[in-house]
């Protein structure tokens, strides 16, 4: 474990806690894309298939359970909680995320390390995570102004993978081991997708103005 990876994991955890705070505190999920949450739930379930077979550390197991549990709770809340579900922007959250699932699965069938059930689903989860934020970014552009907690949610989610890239660079030099190219390339694509969001987020912070993404 190194500081970049630990920071990355903490940013990831913070992003989920910020989202839970927003939903719990405001009893509203306006501005949140349910489709992105569903994609993330699928990412965690397909990536952590080894949850009960390979024990790596208590930290690793606990974090996997927290990620799966919290994302499942958010998806449940946005669909079934009597108060929260009324604030879901159903008509704005129209990204065809099933295409993303299909494309990533086909890609995983062709591009993987070993042709085994677990490896293919692992590659699928890496590809899917890289694009899972797209419905959320599209929703933010459509809904115009972004409330603070939602902006912070996306910011920490972007920062998490950016720190993982630093972690892979660190491990390359310190452990003479390089990251799997599937993770590396997907991680770069994933972080690049946040680039314009980071730019407007920085502008809003510098000008102390409301975060506004151009349509």
């Amino acid at each position: 474990m190194n500081i970049f990876r630990f920071a990355g994991d903490m940013f990831h955890l913070i992003s989920i806690l910020v989202l839970l705070l927003k939903i719990y505190a405001t009893k509203s999920c306006s501005g949140i894309s349910l489709k992105t949450q569903e994609l993330y739930a699928l990412v965690f379930v397909t990536r952590y298939l080894d949850l009960f077979t390979d024990f790596i550390s208590v930290y690793n197991t606990v974090m996997k359970l927290v990620f799966i549990g919290s994302t499942a709770a958010i998806v449940w809340c946005m669909q079934w909680h009597p108060v929260v579900k009324r604030s879901y922007d159903r008509e704005l959250d129209t990204f065809r995320h099933y295409f993303l699932v299909g494309a990533c699965f086909v890609l995983a069938l062709f591009l993987h390390e070993n042709f085994t059930f677990q490896e293919i689903f692992w590659a699928f989860s890496i590809y899917l995570e890289a694009v899972a934020i797209l419905p959320q970014l599209v929703l933010l552009q459509r809904s115009g102004n972004v409330d603070n907690l939602t902006g912070q949610y996306v910011f920490f989610l972007g920062a998490y993978r950016a720190f993982y890239i630093l972690n892979w660079i660190y491990r390359y030099f310190m452990e003479q081991r390089f990251s799997r190219w599937i993770s590396c390339i997907s991680g770069l694509v994933q972080t690049a997708l946040y680039a314009d969001f980071f730019y407007y987020y920085f502008l809003s912070w510098k000008n102390n103005a409301k975060l506004h993404l151009p349509a």
Partner: peptide, 10 residues
């Protein structure tokens, strides 16, 4: 040659 990283990351 360098080994790839173990699958110990989240």
């Amino acid at each position: 040659c360098f080994q790839t990283l173990p699958k110990d990351e989240l």
